[in-house]
Amino acid sequence: MIWRELVDQHDAARERGYPKVEMELRKRVAWLAERGHCSRVYQGRLSDKTKDKRSRRTQVMIKGEQSPIGDPIPLLNLPNVEHPKLWIYALLDDHDKRLLKFTVRLDARWAADKVPFTISVELDDRTMGSGACGHPILHCHMGVDHDRRPQFRLPLPALTPWEALDWLITQLDEAHEPAPWTAPMFSRAAP
């Protein structure tokens, strides 16, 4: 059954997503900075140094100056949206060497009509909701915000945090296309 298979794939991605998560995410932030979409300082603030030796967990986030909960990256030079803010979180289990949870979230408003929106890719640390179809382990929230309707939770294939960020960046800037339609595997589909 596809929904069960998806659960297995998501669980398998927890191991694939564990090593180098911080470095891979930082590469994407550096890419954004290179393109003028954010300040370069966020490369130096994306850190996994919050290691709790007691719980043997590590938190990856953009460290905030005062607050313990992390800061968003204010994105720049995206003409179609206003006040875009990007949150990046990952929680690692250093004991079992697997990814427990991640969130890559963008909140902004469309420049044309000022309508707010949120896109948030989330891997849950545990099963939630009533089942694997209604609440897939890895899903994307899309809506005006996380509380108001319409509010949808879309299933996603097994992506690592950095792959999810690739997807999210590509929605904002097509120049960052990690899989362009030039590879031989896509040639058959070309018109």
């Binding site: 719980s55 967990r57 590590t58 938190q59 986030m61 949150w87 929680l91 909140d107 929230h141 996380h146």
Partner: peptide, 17 residues
Amino acid sequence: DGSPESLGLTYRALLLE
């Protein structure tokens, strides 16, 4: 709620749990 503040606190709580 679904605010960024709640999200950040949830990650922090999971780290400290």
